[in-house]
């Protein structure tokens, strides 16, 4: 990558390895969605696949964290997610309250584990 950035230029590299391999899937979706309505079986199935895939991404981000978050013990991350869910359910299904509770729990847990 380093040499390519110099020889091809940073913006050409951005289009080559960033824009094109990413955008292709959006365009596949655009072509496939032509002429379909919301009740089409393919659209309903796609929504289910997207929800399951998204849930998989979320669970992986919490369980196998990277960067600084990996420094927080896994039980703390799971506990914070559970507390966030409980707060969300308890306070009128408020995403905002849930996120706030989860972050406070993460902070408290991380502080508890750090001597």
């Amino acid at each position: 990558m380093k040499e390519a950035m110099v020889s091809l230029g940073p913006y050409f590299v951005l289009i080559l390895v960033g824009f094109l391999p990413n955008e292709i899937w959006r365009l596949v979706g655009l072509v496939l969605a032509r002429g379909l309505n919301e009740e089409s079986e393919l659209v309903v199935w796609s929504r289910m696949v997207a929800i399951a895939l998204l849930a998989g991404v979320i669970a992986k981000l919490i369980l196998f964290s990277s960067g600084e978050l990996a420094g927080v013990p896994t039980p703390v991350r799971i506990g914070a997610a559970v507390i966030a869910f409980a707060a969300f359910m308890a306070v009128n299904r408020s995403v905002f309250v849930g996120v706030l509770a989860g972050e406070v729990a993460l902070l408290a847990g991380a502080a508890w584990y750090t001597p």
Binding site: I24, V28, L30
Partner: peptide
């Protein structure tokens, strides 16, 4: 890198199919 990006981007395809008809 291009391969890793394209694998991460597959999620976008069912999302677009579910969204555009709305």
């Amino acid at each position: 890198v291009a391969l890793a990006v394209t694998l991460s981007a597959m999620r976008l395809f069912p999302m677009v199919v579910a969204l555009l008809p709305m």
